[in-house]
Every structure is written in structure tokens, then in C-alpha cells.
């Protein structure tokens, strides 16, 4: 579905990604984990088209998408839910969701998609006339995921969906992520909450210094001693 080869990208003269190789197959949930500042978000932003790669390639179903520009990437069904939610603060929940279907591929199904999102997150229907900026963190996150779904993605990228949320909200959000996975949507999840991400992921990549240092199934990495020590904060006996 998505193939990334020797990807280099960054901001200005700072190269954050230093040769990433990564594959995402259709229907898979892939987690990208690692400490703060290793390039996880940069990787998603580059796939999403917000950043142009300085070297290497990104292909989606055989078509090169690196450097196409975000609006063209969305039209190919690759959609990113950004870190920090980034709802349009002075639009209602409903408007936020509707603008999610801006892409030409999503517009004709707008009404149907909206019903599906409301079915997944009933709280959003209750709050549909409230301004985005007035929702609680967990509700904002649900609205942001719902807005991403409105674009009818074939690949949905979630950037730090649990960041800054109360434990109960994290639980709700991840229930939704599982529900989305069970519909067969391909997911790429970036998380600092490594335990949470590995539990839901089929496979995972560990990134360090802008490179992939380890990859495997969620279970393999959960049991990997280095990962446990470095990212899960678990000891051998835990």
C-alpha cells in the first residue's frame, strides 16, 4: 500500500529523517514509536505532503506521492489526523466534520459519512452545534478523528492521539481506533504512549535519530528487552 525507501526530510537545513525504509500493507495497523524528537511526526508530515522529501521516495499503490503537496495526497486517500487535534476553533463540530469531506473524492458521500461518524462517536452528534474550541480534549480528539474519516481515507495516519488526554479519554479514543481497524482501514499510528500503540498494532517500527532501528510485530516488540527498558519503562520481571 505504502512503500517508503531511503526517505530524507526535514525543516530548512536540519535533516530530521535520515534514510527511513518502511512498508505499510493494506488493512494493517502499523505503529511508529520512539522517544520525543526522533522524527515520528516529521515522517507523518512528509507522507501527508506537508513537507517535501529531500531524498528518497514515497509510493502509494505504485504511484510516487513524495512532494506532491498535502491536498493531492488527501485526494489519493491518505489522510492525517494531526497532533494537537487542530480543530477549526471557531467552527461548529458539524462544520469541522463537513470540511473534512472537502476532497472531491469525499464530497458526494458527505451525508452518509457524517452519519457514520456520528454512529462511531455519538457524543459528536450531541455537540454538533458547539464550537470546536469549546470541546473537552477527548471530544476534540474524537472530532479530529471523525473529521479525518470524513475524507474517506484508505490510509488514516494518527499523530499522538492520546497526548494530553485523561486516562479515561485515552481508553475511549483507543476503543474507536480498534473499531476503525476492524472495518479494515489501514492505520499508521504515531505514539509516545508505546504500550498503548503496540497493543493495537499488527507491526511496529522503532525510530531513533531519524532512522528505523528495530521493527517487528507488536507482540515481538512488546517482548523485546531493549524496547521494554527504553520505551515501556518495564523491568524484566514486570
Amino acid at each position: 500500500m505504502i512503500e517508503i525507501r531511503d526517505l530524507h526530510a526535514g525543516y530548512g537545513d536540519t535533516e530530521v529523517l535520515q534514510g527511513i525504509d518502511l512498508d505499510v500493507r493494506a488493512g494493517e495497523v502499523v505503529a511508529i514509536v520512539g522517544a520525543n524528537g526522533v522524527g515520528k511526526t516529521t515522517l507523518l508530515r512528509t507522507i501527508a505532503g506537508l513537507i517535501a522529501p529531500s531524498r528518497g521516495s514515497i509510493t502509494a499503490e505504485g504511484e510516487a506521492i513524495g512532494g506532491l503537496g498535502a491536498h493531492r495526497v488527501v485526494e489519493r486517500g491518505i489522510v492525517m489526523v494531526p497532533e494537537g487535534r487542530r480543530l477549526f476553533p471557531r467552527m461548529t463540530v458539524r462544520r469541522n466534520l463537513e470540511i473534512g469531506a472537502y476532497a472531491a473524492r469525499a464530497r458526494p458521500r458527505l451525508k452518509q459519512s457524517l452519519e457514520e461518524v456520528y454512529a462511531l462517536f455519538p457524543i459528536l452528534r450531541e455537540r454538533e452545534d458547539q464550537l470546536g474550541g469549546t470541546l473537552s480534549g477527548g471530544q476534540q480528539q474524537m472530532c479530529a478523528i471523525g473529521r479525518g474519516l470524513m475524507a474517506l481515507p484508505s490510509v488514516l495516519m494518527l499523530d499522538e492521539v492520546s497526548l494530553g488526554l485523561a486516562p479515561i479519554a485515552v481508553k475511549r479514543v483507543y476503543e474507536a481506533v480498534r473499531a476503525i481497524r476492524d472495518r479494515g482501514l489501514t492505520l499508521i499510528i504515531v505514539e509516545q504512549n508505546v504500550g498503548q500503540a503496540l497493543k493495537v498494532a499488527d507491526r511496529a517500527y522503532v525510530i531513533q535519530g531519524g532512522r528505523v532501528v528495530l521493527s517487528g510485530t507488536g507482540r515481538e516488540l512488546t517482548n523485546n528487552e531493549d524496547v521494554r527498558r527504553a520505551y515501556l519503562g518495564l523491568t524484566e520481571h514486570a
Binding site: 501527508a48 476553533p89 467552527m91 463537513e98 470540511i99 472537502y102 476532497a103 472531491a104
Partner: peptide, 23 residues
């Protein structure tokens, strides 16, 4: 209108607007 809402979206958050497929 869709283009009107796109204008509104860009005025509120450019990055989020781009991620919605807005040029």
C-alpha cells in the same frame, strides 16, 4: 459554499486546512 468554507478554514488553521485537502 465549499470554497467559502475553505477560505474560512485557512483563516483559522492553515495546516489543518491543508490536511483536509484544501489547496
Amino acid at each position: 459554499t465549499f470554497i467559502g468554507r475553505a477560505i474560512e478554514a485557512v483563516s483559522q488553521d492553515l495546516v489543518a486546512a491543508r490536511l483536509m485537502g484544501i489547496d
